[in-house]
Lab assay of single mutants.
Amino acid sequence: AVSDRLIGRKGVVMEAISPQNSGLVKVDGETWRATSGTVLDVGEEVSVKAIEGVKLVVEKLE
């Protein structure tokens, strides 16, 4: 699937994400809805860990 190529890629949070609410991330110039187990603020760099349906699962870049 086209989304599989995104796993491991870096992105930037465009709309804040929390465990309760999905947000938006931009990866390779495309905007995706994303979820995370932690709070991520706009502008934070993330990496794509998995894909669930049409949402990316991301975590903060260390």
Rank of each mutant, 00 (worst) to 15 (best):
E15C: 05
G11W: 01
S3H: 10
V48Y: 00
L24Y: 10
A1I: 13
T38S: 14
V2A: 12
V54A: 14
K55E: 11
R5L: 14
V2R: 02
V46N: 00
V39W: 09
R9L: 13
V27G: 01
V12C: 05
E44N: 09
T35N: 09
G43D: 09
L40G: 01
D28E: 14
V25A: 10
R9M: 15
A16Q: 15
A1Y: 05
V13Q: 00
E45S: 11
E30M: 14
V13G: 00
S22M: 15
L24C: 06
P19S: 08
E45F: 09
V48S: 01
V48A: 02
L56R: 00
A16R: 14
G23D: 00
G43H: 08
T38C: 05
L6G: 02
A16T: 13
L56C: 04
L40S: 02
V13N: 00
K55F: 15
L61F: 10
S36I: 01
K10C: 05
K10S: 07
V12M: 06
E45N: 12
E62D: 11
S36G: 06
V25Y: 00
V13H: 00
K55Y: 14
G29I: 06
V2Y: 03
V25W: 00
S22L: 12
A1W: 07
P19Q: 07
S36E: 01
R33V: 14
K26P: 01
E45I: 12
R5T: 13
E59M: 12
A34W: 01
K10A: 09
R9N: 09
E52T: 12
K49Y: 08
W32D: 01
V25D: 00
I17M: 06
I51M: 07
V39E: 07
R9P: 02
E30A: 12
E62T: 12
L6E: 02
K49G: 04
E52C: 05
E59A: 13
V57Q: 05
V46Y: 01
S36R: 01
G43Y: 07
D28N: 08
E59T: 09
K26T: 13
G23R: 00
N21R: 08
P19F: 07
G29T: 06
V46M: 03
L61D: 09
K60W: 04
L56S: 01
S47V: 12
S47A: 11
L61Y: 13
S47E: 12
E52P: 02
V27T: 03
G11K: 00
T31D: 14
L56F: 03
G53V: 03
L40K: 02
S3A: 15
D28H: 07
T35W: 08
G53K: 04
G23N: 01
E30Q: 15
G37C: 05
Q20C: 06
W32P: 00
L40D: 01
D28L: 07
G11A: 06
R5M: 13
G11D: 01
A1F: 08
V13Y: 00
S18Q: 07
D41Y: 15
V27F: 03
T35V: 13
T31K: 12
V39N: 11
K60Q: 06
V27Y: 02
V46G: 02
E45W: 10
I17W: 02
V48T: 02
S47N: 13
S36V: 01
M14Y: 12
K60Y: 05
A34V: 02
D4H: 08
T38P: 02
G23H: 01
L56I: 11
K49T: 11
A16M: 15
K55S: 14
K49F: 06
G23E: 01
I51F: 07
E44F: 07
T31I: 15
E44P: 00
V48D: 00
V54N: 11
V58Q: 00
E59H: 07
V27N: 00
T31G: 05
V13C: 04
L40F: 08
L56T: 02
G8I: 02
D41I: 10
V58N: 00
V57L: 09
A50K: 10
E30K: 09
K10N: 15
I7W: 03
G29H: 14
K10H: 09
S22Y: 13
T31Q: 11
E52Y: 11
V39S: 14
S22G: 10
S3L: 14
V2L: 13
L61K: 07
V48P: 01
A16S: 13
G43L: 12
E45A: 11
E45K: 09
G11R: 00
E59F: 07
E59Q: 10
A34C: 04
S36N: 02
D28Q: 11
S36D: 01
A1T: 15
Q20H: 11
S47K: 11
V27P: 00
V58G: 01
E62G: 12
R33I: 10
M14K: 09
G11H: 00
S3K: 07
S18V: 10
D28K: 06
V13D: 00
M14G: 04
R5N: 13
R5D: 12
S47M: 15
V25I: 07
T35H: 06
V39I: 09
K49D: 03
L24A: 12
S18H: 12
S22H: 13
N21M: 06
V39C: 05
L56K: 00
I7T: 04
R5I: 07
S18P: 04
L40Y: 03
S47C: 05
V48H: 00
A50D: 08
E44L: 10
L6F: 07
V13W: 01
T35M: 10
V57K: 06
E52M: 09
V54G: 15
E45Q: 14
V42F: 07
G11E: 01
R9F: 08
E52S: 10
S36A: 13
E44S: 10
D41W: 10
T35K: 14
A16V: 08
V39A: 15
A16K: 14
T38F: 11
V25S: 01
G37I: 09
D4A: 05
G43A: 06
K55H: 15
G37Q: 15
I7Q: 03
V39G: 08
D4P: 04
A50P: 00
V13K: 00
I7M: 05
V48I: 12
R9Q: 12
D41M: 14
T38E: 13
V48C: 03
V54F: 14
G43P: 04
G43T: 06
S36F: 02
E15N: 09
L40N: 03
D4I: 12
L6Y: 05
N21T: 14
E15F: 11
W32N: 02
P19I: 08
A34D: 00
S3M: 13
E45L: 15
V25F: 01
T38L: 15
A50Y: 07
V12H: 08
A1C: 06
W32T: 02
E52H: 14
T35L: 14
M14N: 04
